[in-house]
Design a protein around this nucleic acid. Structure first.
Length: 891
RNA sequence: GGGCCGGUCGUCUAGCGGUUAGGACGUCGCGCUUACAACGCGGAGAUCGGCGGUUCGAAUCCGCCCCGGCCCA
């Protein structure tokens, strides 16, 4: 009795069963100190901000494919999962969540905030875990890490202290990107620029000495005039040459400020005069630094973006900058200070996290000198120590990494790693230490004040590849799994994360943290928009898994999808995945129905009868070619190509062709030897293909593999198949070309002649060559059965076919379909075919007639063209009914 | 303003110097042929964004232009 499996594939039950099976067997637990080949991936830890999106699923699927394949290849595989506390982003998410209950996060005491965030984290973490398990990702849960766990905290502090000690990290007063809503500094990368409408005001700064007129200054931020310390013009600007050195009065407050010259002024903007507000603009700040005589610049905005300070008139203090802008504009208008107003579009900096307008603000923060850390990272990519895939992203990497600004790492929020610094209240010493100090090492004073800020979340993330392996301890894991094999991620965090990890790795772990970086494409929805949490157009992965199973989702994420660019994911894509799973399942069922009792697991290659049928030899050769291509695609980081190759092979070569051709033999209609061969071949091909497919769709393949005769306990750790297990057999591939041409032609003629489905007309056939004749003759059974004709008879020449038969001429032969009952209409298809062939022939002949072509094209190209012309003209002659030329070739 | 990517059947894409330009989805026709209608068989459908150039030969290389997207300033 053949083994039975359910006629319908129930992914939910099957997938859960294998997930717990693999887990209980501990298949994904990496050995600490393996000998031999090893393969390591550190999973980019998802943020607790949310749960896994489809984009995560895509990246994780790619990682799983790579990891599972390596496991089958016998490598010690470590795939390390984790979770990122995502400091500011999480605080913002929780803040938004609280706002729905009318609670302002800022109003809560620190402990309550941490408690709220802690609860939030627990919930997301549980969901992310559930998602990862349900998708069948083969991560090593025993090595799960969190960016805020004890070891991460210590490692982060360690890095801070070392960088501080080495002078690569400093505290200083700089213009930073200030987010007034979140009341914190953010890094350059967390700022997004957008074109927005504004109004450009031309303000007249009157001369201090009361002489008529003044300097006209253009600005979109009139509320900042209270922070003005000067008006600057270009030193070579003839319009303003006489103004330099004079003084003007700031409108509304009449405070006198000097007119200075600075080469940074854009003469074409406005009237070529710029109001200088060093505390609230980066360019102005630099100008201010070049003109120390201007003194310390006044700050006129507080941390919430409200006007404040002595320089601001009472009436505007405490007023938000946006409101203040309108009030000031009105007042300026009333004072007659506005010369002109015009609509203006300009680029506005907004906070990626809060979307509030970023205010450049002078403040004291901690910075990392990235420029000093970058060279080894650049070098690694340049020398190929780190390879980026697709490689065109190297350009983008270089461009960014070669023009680095210092990285502002301090944040004025609650959620994050505390900055490991204390200040001595006695002597002012700055103490950076991993463990909090008891006393000042300099003056032994005991009054120490901790730094109130926390670290940018990326200051932990950039250490991830080695911190997760135990750094700064010298663990066996660090020794064996660092550098990791590949980093798979989205290119949106190339600067935030990938580049910085390379810098940190080189500095602290002795080299770059991975050999390869693979950037996945990004998913788009049916309207072409990028999927994002923000747009809400990303389906919940667990919903999709519930509907179609994880395997279907995983496969759909890779097929059909662009090789290395963004691709769409729609309802139809998912359906495609599900359909493929059904196909695999049914192929498995079919095979099980044809296995003899006690069949053995397929060996290295099926033991075939020497004269075994063409289809057997052909499908083995096709399997080998597929296995080779799949290997090449995966080695080249083209998982979507590998998925498509397997899809094509299993569905169209195995299911549509081989199984249909071998059905007679499998049933036993062609004798015992043929049956034994076909069974052995089908079992071999399917078993080996299940192995190739396992990394992509692990559950269904594990399920079917267990139902088949097999060796070993788990497909998940069975050997990855070797292409050489099957012969290449180019002869069989060429012969199948001839045979399939015949089958296709007969099917074609039937459809063209409108033959009713039940009717089996007779076919006549005139092969082009003895070789074709031999092949077709040997398998006339297949021509008959798959071509759906009653019988095939061989004729010696075209005239041997009856009047009115439907006719087709192919490179391998002439085919006639004879209908006993009805007569066939004129073969319109043949005429069209003739016309098409004639066009190609004309084109080819024109090429051959061209002296330049004959003289310069490589000999084989000319020979091919000649061969093509011969074949085409021969075929056309045969269509025209001229006596067939000698079967061996043309004139 | 700078940079990158893309523009190929209705749609999504493969091809990246010599191909009868390949596939998937959709569409049309015929079929419930005992693994699978979540399927099979067959058909129609693209002069490869535009203009120039290089070349014996260009969807493929170069230049300019137009359109869409992304990144940086």
């Amino acid at each position: 009795m053949p083994k039975e499996i359910p006629s319908r594939f129930d992914p939910g039950e099957v997938e859960r069963r294998w997930q717990s099976g693999w887990a209980e067997a501990g298949l994904f637990t990496a050995p600490s100190a393996p000998a031999g080949p090893r393969f390591a991936i550190v999973l980019p830890p998802p943020n607790v901000t949310g749960v896994l999106t489809l984009g995560h699923m895509l990246g994780d699927t790619v990682m799983d494919v790579l990891a599972r394949r390596q496991r089958m290849k016998g490598a010690a595989v470590l795939w390390l999962p984790g979770l990122d506390h995502a400091g500011l982003a999480t605080q913002v998410a929780v803040r938004r969540h609280l706002a729905k209950e009318n609670v302002r996060l800022e109003d809560l005491p620190r402990e309550r905030i941490l408690e709220q965030i802690g609860r939030w984290k627990e919930a997301r973490e549980a969901t992310i875990r559930a998602q990862t398990v349900a998708a069948g990702f083969s991560v090593d849960w025993t090595r799960y890490r969190y960016t805020m766990d004890e070891r991460s905290v210590r490692a982060t502090r360690e890095v801070f202290v070392r960088l501080f000690r080495d002078g690569l990290l400093y505290r200083g007063e700089r213009i930073v990107n200030w987010d007034p809503r979140l009341r914190t500094a953010v890094s350059n990368l967390e700022v997004v620029h957008r074109e927005e409408a504004a109004e450009l005001l031309y303000l007249c700064y009157r001369w201090e000495d009361g002489s008529p007129g003044g300097l006209v200054v253009a600005t979109v931020r009139p509320e900042t005039i209270f922070g003005d310390v000067a008006v600057a013009v270009h030193p070579d600007d003839p319009r303003h040459a006489g103004a330099i050195g004079r003084k003007v009065r700031v409108p509304l407050v009449d405070r006198p400020v000097p007119v200075i010259a600075d080469a940074a002024i854009d003469r074409d903007f406005g009237n070529g005069a710029l109001k200088v507000t060093p505390a609230h603009d980066l360019l102005d700040h630099e100008i201010g630094r070049r003109h120390p005589e201007l003194g310390a610049p006044p700050t006129i905005l507080d941390e919430a973006g409200r006007l404040s300070g002595e320089n601001v008139p009472e009436a505007y203090r405490g007023v938000d900058r946006a409101v203040a802008r309108e009030l000031v504009t009105t007042a300026l208008e009333a004072a007659g200070a506005i010369v002109r107003r015009e609509p203006y579009r300009h680029s506005v900096a907004r906070s990626e996290r809060s979307d509030d307008v970023i205010e450049p603000r002078l403040s004291t923060q901690w910075f990392v000198r990235l420029g000093a850390l970058a060279p080894p990272a650049v070098e690694a990519v340049r020398t190929g120590a780190v390879r980026i895939h697709p490689d065109r992203w190297e350009l983008t990497f270089f461009r960014w990494v070669e023009s680095l600004e210092d990285w502002c790492i301090s944040r004025q929020v609650v959620w994050g790693h505390a900055i490991p610094v204390h200040y001595c209240e006695t002597c002012g010493e700055v103490i950076a230490s991993v463990d909090p100090p008891d006393a000042c090492p300099k003056c032994e004073g005991r009054r120490l004040r901790p730094d109130p800020d926390v670290l940018d979340t990326w200051f932990t993330s950039w250490l991830w590849p080695f911190v997760t392996l135990g750094w700064p301890e010298r663990t066996p894991e660090l020794a064996r799994y660092y550098p990791t094999s590949v980093l798979v991620t989205g290119r949106d965090i190339m600067f935030f994360w990938v580049a910085r990890m390379m810098m940190a790795g080189a500095r602290f772990a002795g080299g770059p943290p991975f050999d390869h970086v693979y950037f996945t494409g990004m998913l788009r929805d049916e309207t072409g928009r990028k999927m994002s949490k923000h747009l809400g157009n990303s389906p919940e992965p667990l919903d999709l898994i519930r509907r179609t199973g994880a395997d279907a989702l995983r496969f759909a994420l890779l097929h059909p999808n662009p090789v290395d660019q963004d691709g769409p994911f729609t309802e139809a894509t998912l359906e495609g995945g599900r359909n493929f799973l059904t196909k695999i399942w049914n192929l498995g069922r079919f095979l099980l129905g044809h296995l003899p009792d006690g069949a053995a697991a397929p060996g290295r290659a099926p033991d075939l009868d020497p004269g075994s049928a063409l289809e057997n030899r052909w499908i083995l050769a096709r399997w080998r070619a597929t296995a080779e291509s799949v290997d090449a695609a995966l080695d080249g980081f083209e998982p979507t190509v590998a998925a498509s190759l397997l899809y094509q092979f299993l569905w169209h070569d195995v299911a549509d062709r081989y199984v249909e051709m071998a059905k007679d033999a499998l049933r036993g209609d062609r004798g015992e030897i043929a049956q034994r061969d076909a069974r052995a071949v089908l079992l071999f091909v399917l078993e080996r293909t299940l192995r190739l497919l396992h990394p992509f769709v692990p559950h269904v393949t594990e399920e079917l593999w267990h139902a088949l005769p097999h060796e070993g306990e788990w497909l998940a750790v069975s050997p990855w198949p070797l292409p050489a297990d099957a012969p290449a057999d180019p002869e069989a591939v060429a012969a199948m070309e001839v045979l399939w041409d015949g089958i296709r032609t007969l099917r074609n003629l039937r459809a063209e002649a409108d033959v009713p489905a039940a009717e089996l007309p007779e076919a006549r056939l005139l092969p082009t060559s003895p070789e074709s004749e031999r092949i077709l003759l040997a398998r006339s059974d297949l021509l008959t059965r798959l071509g759906r004709v009653s019988r095939v008879t061989w004729i010696a020449e075209s005239s041997g076919a009856p009047e009115g038969a439907a006719r087709s001429v192919t490179p391998h032969g002439e085919y006639f379909l004879v209908r006993p009952a009805a007569s066939l209409g004129p073969a319109g298809g043949l005429a069209r075919e003739r016309e098409k062939l004639q066009t190609i022939l004309d084109r080819t002949r024109a090429r051959l007639a061209d002296e330049g072509f004959r003289a310069r094209a490589p000999a084989h190209v000319v020979a091919e063209a000649e061969e093509k012309a011969r074949e085409l003209s021969d075929r056309i002659r045969r269509i025209d009914g001229a006596p067939a030329s000698a079967p061996s070739g043309g004139p």
